[in-house]
Design a protein around this nucleic acid. Sequence first.
DNA 1: CCGGTGATGTTC
DNA 2: AACATCACCGGG
Length: 204
Amino acid sequence: MGKNSLPLSFYQSYDTLTLAQKLLGCELVHDSPDGITSGIIVETEAYLANDPACHAYNRRTARTEPMYSQAGTIYVYLIYGMYQCVNVVSNAEGIGEAVLIRALQPVQGIELMHQRRSLIETKTAKKIKAVTVKELCRGPGKLVKAMGIERDLHNNQLLDESTLYINKPEFLDFEIASSVRIGINVGVALPYRFIIKNNLFVSK
DNA sequence: CCGGTGATGTTC
DNA sequence: AACATCACCGGG
């Protein structure tokens, strides 16, 4: 928390495709009761209002309503019954767009991230094999688990008095590469995925 | 490869 | 009320 965190005006200053790139190199921080965890954002995807892969595409419902609120709002959703993903809402109020955070390079609270990732919530709660630091936040479901992001953050804002916020860029000198997005069936040709080129913490 | 898992949106 | 869909992950 403090002077390094991005103000709402930052999220409001760019269109969604630009914001998805501007967030690369910034530090996502979660100040939870268990401790602080954080990581550099190394991979994002943009979801636009005219984009069939976007949850808010031709839909304005209870679930997608936060996507229509002001930029800097947090959109968390359940996917495949088991995993949560976190998005930064973008663009003006009334336009349903967001940026999905897909991978982090862990910085703070790495031990806590390991603890959170070490169990899966099956009936048996059996242990999964040990993960390396590189694997801790490599994927949208994994990073939400490692960061301890819960559904209660949904529809909150990324203010510095929030428990979840984003700091100004830690990395400044890098190249951005773009590609098609992962795991979707529509809008497959759109090059709306952005990564820090040559970063080892990007997902496959 | 393939199945687990449950909310959501759409259709009937 | 029933069904198809899904911005994922881990086991094999």
